[in-house]
Design a protein around this nucleic acid. Structure first.
Lengths: 157, 157
DNA sequence: CTAGGTGCAAACAATTTGCTGCTCA
DNA sequence: TGAGCAGCAAATTGTTTGCACCTAG
């Protein structure tokens, strides 16, 4: 609500994210290079973007940053469990940070403007486990994307 | 259970599918060419396959069948609402027939052997509508994929 | 005939990799 | 010094399209 709260809250989260990245990289004997941290930072500020968009954003802070570096960094962060990659309809892979490892959320995508809203719902997750169980599957993960028209796009029509 | 039953059942479904394809193509002023019907048939017998696999399968029946023809036929059938295209983790698009237009089902994918089991669950769908409503979205469609280890792969370990 | 359909091969676009030089422990 | 890292450019992969030939109405 109040500017200071939001700011300090955002800052806090970003620091937590940053240290998580550094720590996790160190654990895997990977160097927390400026480029990698820049990619991680960009990812923090711009969720659900594809490789190209992330590269564009990051380039504003460091114009020499290469495309392959962003690519390899994303793969690296993904392998470390720090980011998730998903694919909504349009042909490109989109990345988002995975701030709290255990937490899983799903997506609702507006087919009008492409806006992505995140949500989670324990009841549905419980039912998913039931379904898996009924088929004898050992559930490891899931994805659920809801497509629809957001309020703003509904009004615009 | 008994061979005859299964066979006749399968045959019945296939005929229904085939006539639906022919009928739907006719309605859109598209010709039910042998190649298109072959693709439709292949699709019926081999669900959740990608373009390349479908092409391989179809080629057994008609070695002259071109890749582009399979591609264009799939797009055509998709536009007619006869097939659905989805994308599970691996980089390729997979196709499946959409026998009963109104019916929607979801997928459970074995991360061990890639086997795909279809299911549907009304309760979850109801909750999805609730979630969308809560965010002011007008829900148009959804996808839900559960990933896990199938009973067979669990035993193998 | 002629519109639509096919197969081939080439074009595309997103992603992935090889390589060379550089940097930091 | 040397293992890991960055940037460039080329290779790869999945998908899409242009074009010339063909076939059924």
């Amino acid at each position: 609500m109040r500017g200071t709260d939001v700011t300090s809250q955002a800052k806090l989260d970003f620091d937590a994210w940053r240290s998580r990245v550094v720590e996790r990289l160190a654990r895997d004997h990977q160097r927390p290079t400026p480029q990698r941290l820049l990619v991680a930072e960009t990812l923090f500020h711009h969720g659900h973007q594809n490789l190209d968009e992330l590269h564009q954003h990051a380039r504003r802070a460091d114009p020499t940053l290469g495309y392959a570096t962003v690519y390899r960094t994303l793969k690296l962060l993904e392998k470390c469990g720090l980011v998730n990659c998903s694919n909504f309809g349009d042909g490109t892979a989109r990345y988002e940070i995975n701030l709290h490892a255990a937490e899983h959320h799903d997506h609702m995508i507006c087919t009008g403007c492409g806006r992505i809203v995140e949500f989670e719902n324990d009841a549905i997750e419980a039912m998913q486990r039931q379904i898996a169980l009924a088929h004898g599957f050992e559930l490891t993960s899931h994805r659920m994307d809801l497509y629809g028209v957001c309020p703003r796009c509904q009004r615009r029509k």
